[in-house]
Design a protein around this nucleic acid. Sequence first.
DNA 1: CTGAAAGCGCTTACAG
DNA 2: CTGAAAGCGCTTACAG
Lengths: 332, 332
Amino acid sequence: MTMRDVATVAGVSTATVSKVLNDRPDVGAEVRQRVLETITRLGYRPNAVARGLRSRHTDTIAILTDDLEGIFTNALMRGVEDAASEYDVSVLLANSYGDPEKERKHLRRLIDRQVDGLIIMSGNRVRPRPGPALPLPGTPYVFLYEYGTSEPVPSVLPDDRGGAVLAARHLTGLGRRRIGFINGPASWDATRDRLEGLTVTVHEAGLTLDPALVRHAPSWSPEDGYALAESMLATHRPPDAIFCASDDLATGALAAIHERGLRIPGDVAVVGFDDRSLAVHQRPPLTTVALPLHEMGRTAGSLLLAAINGAPQRHELIRVPCELKVRASTSG
Amino acid sequence: MTMRDVATVAGVSTATVSKVLNDRPDVGAEVRQRVLETITRLGYRPNAVARGLRSRHTDTIAILTDDLEGIFTNALMRGVEDAASEYDVSVLLANSYGDPEKERKHLRRLIDRQVDGLIIMSGNRVRPRPGPALPLPGTPYVFLYEYGTSEPVPSVLPDDRGGAVLAARHLTGLGRRRIGFINGPASWDATRDRLEGLTVTVHEAGLTLDPALVRHAPSWSPEDGYALAESMLATHRPPDAIFCASDDLATGALAAIHERGLRIPGDVAVVGFDDRSLAVHQRPPLTTVALPLHEMGRTAGSLLLAAINGAPQRHELIRVPCELKVRASTSG
DNA sequence: CTGAAAGCGCTTACAG
DNA sequence: CTGAAAGCGCTTACAG
């Protein structure tokens, strides 16, 4: 069943069928109608491979990730798919499992298959990323949630600094004066920006940050959040609020505060970061800075699609604003 | 950069270049050598779209899942990819997010793109599955980890019954005589097979199952495992072993046993099912029936590839054997 | 508004 | 062993 069959049955040329299929204006109304009917009657579907060969585009983009099982991967992907579906573009998924050799192989295959563009997305950084593992001549790409891209590539990240500003304003606005900060491991780029946002905002409120209450956790785990919160609480001037650079850290902090018999938020207010589903299930539900994962995915997708459609690629970092979710851990 | 360029530079015809590329025997050694060198020198890569149009196959299969974030999805996928890479076939991923409309759309697109075959994989059942959401004329497919496929489609599942037999033999071999069973929700097909395997094996050992100790949990969660174990332990003739139909259930059971101050495995031995990573981190590490996820994926991939290469499709259920992982929760 | 013709980059009988 | 030619199923100038 090919376009020729449709043409024959409808009594037109294949060129006309093609025009109808591609919504070109230069087809008469009744002819268009007849062709359309024939198509549905025969159940004809155009061969995407043939179309791709001729028209030089496949209406397909690919997401290449090294961390398909990552906690943020799904929301990011959905964002990309949302953007893509607006343009009627399919999205393929390829997983390198964190193996650079696999990444190269996938990249080559995707290029061979003529995908129109690529989104390179990570959770855990496989390697330093000056760009894709392969030069991508003529294929637009954008990085999504990839920290550590020193080179100027189009890249979409959360506004970590701005997110911390939101949290800090919320806390100072609530009258908290001694804010502790349990940051993630210093090796993560995001922790620098979050610390900076917090610091600047606290200073703007006329307060200072006590260095004893500002700590990098060795990992993002609840256990480390617990340990650091406990040590802050044990000082003779404990904090009246603890901001944590992840929800997992905050979970640990909540436990430490409870264990001391302190009230949340009465004695100590707690703010997390990420807005994972566990945040809302905490006791009390956790106020947190939501990572705009879905919006980041959308942004990356739209950027890529724009580039594919000829827009000039902006080789720069795009920061997508975070949103503060206020819950009972700060405003009971 | 096309095959014509390579042909010109190497001083041969495109037909010859094509033959070299496809490892056909009918090319002279020195010509082959020359073409190969030219290809690498020019960095030529064949256009997969053109090749696909002409040769009617794309060397690509797709996995269509409704549950990309499912706990078993990754291991299954890796198995499929392993099988595919042996055949030098790429695997595409498409996610329906559990939306039947999305599934249909993906299916249509994948067929339009001429994938050579499909693996339809689920964690949570979207709908009754007599087959794919769409008739797939001429495109081989196999179901992977899809329960409830009443119709005769090629389908790969774990040997749930056999897995339960392994667990039961282990327990009776250890001399346990009162075996409790915390099964999953009765609506899951797997629970029937697991119960049957357990029952038959226990009877073979000359023992009986006390109906009071055989229960369906309302969900697969640790909380339900805890509650049911607790109620079994509270009877005046408590079990000396508890078999759980999932590691999560077993986690809850372990907690209930600990809380009663009983020793594991001294007083009560515990066996789980799944072998998720949490099993090995329990106190004590959990003996469990490992789901052969990777092998299931491989099997589905191999079956599909064989079908693509012309093997007759066997429309039947393939059960892949489980493996018992013995750890300290049964043999301290 | 419609169609004949060329061509996208390959592969595949087939002739030599 | 090698190459000329046809053709996979579309789209795209172009002529009418």
